[in-house]
């Protein structure tokens, strides 16, 4: 399954991220994960949100330069070697990772590793064949990160 990440072009200066988060707050959009990569005077804010299409609309209407980009969100065990299994597989299949980030779903249980790649269809097929769980937007928005509630 494929998920969608929002990428926002932003100049590297105070207030740019604040503008994005305030728009998300006002629009009641939940940010599941966020990373920022910057290069000197400008950068890109990457976000996984619960409603990417609506968030895209809000940001675009506010005049921001936004792109909706397909990514693969893979569920991995949150334990030593959990990530390694996945990466070794991608390596064997010669899949190159352009950008990646991860977040924990349930402490010591589950984590999500999000990868930007150019061979997206191949990656999804390989992961499914190896029984990796991938999340789409709907699944991402439904995930319950509050592990303590299970006690």
């Amino acid at each position: 399954m494929v998920a969608y990440q929002l990428s926002i072009f932003a100049e590297n200066k105070p207030g740019r991220l604040a503008k994005v988060t305030s728009l998300m707050a006002a629009g009641k959009i939940n940010i599941r994960a966020i990373t920022i990569s910057s290069s000197d005077a400008f950068g890109v804010i990457n976000m996984l949100v619960d409603e990417p299409d609506r968030a895209h609309k809000i940001l675009t209407e506010a005049g921001l330069t936004v792109s909706l980009k397909p990514v693969v969100a893979v569920v991995i065990p949150d334990k030593p070697g959990g990530l390694d299994n996945l990466i070794q597989l991608l390596s064997r299949e010669e899949i190159n990772i352009e950008n990646a980030y991860g977040f924990v779903l349930e402490s010591w249980e589950k984590a999500v590793f999000v990868v930007e790649i150019d061979q997206i269809d191949k990656t999804v097929a390989v992961l499914e064949a190896e029984k990796f769980e991938t999340l789409d937007t709907e699944a991402l928005s439904a995930i319950e990160p509050f592990h303590y509630m299970k006690y």
Binding site: S7, F9, S39, F42, V44, T65, S67, K69, E98
Partner: peptide
């Protein structure tokens, strides 16, 4: 100013353009 339509969300692309 970068044109909106050009932006694909990729930092490398921006770097190359720069």
């Amino acid at each position: 100013e970068v044109l909106k339509d050009f932006f694909s969300g990729d930092l490398k692309q921006l770097e190359a353009l720069r």
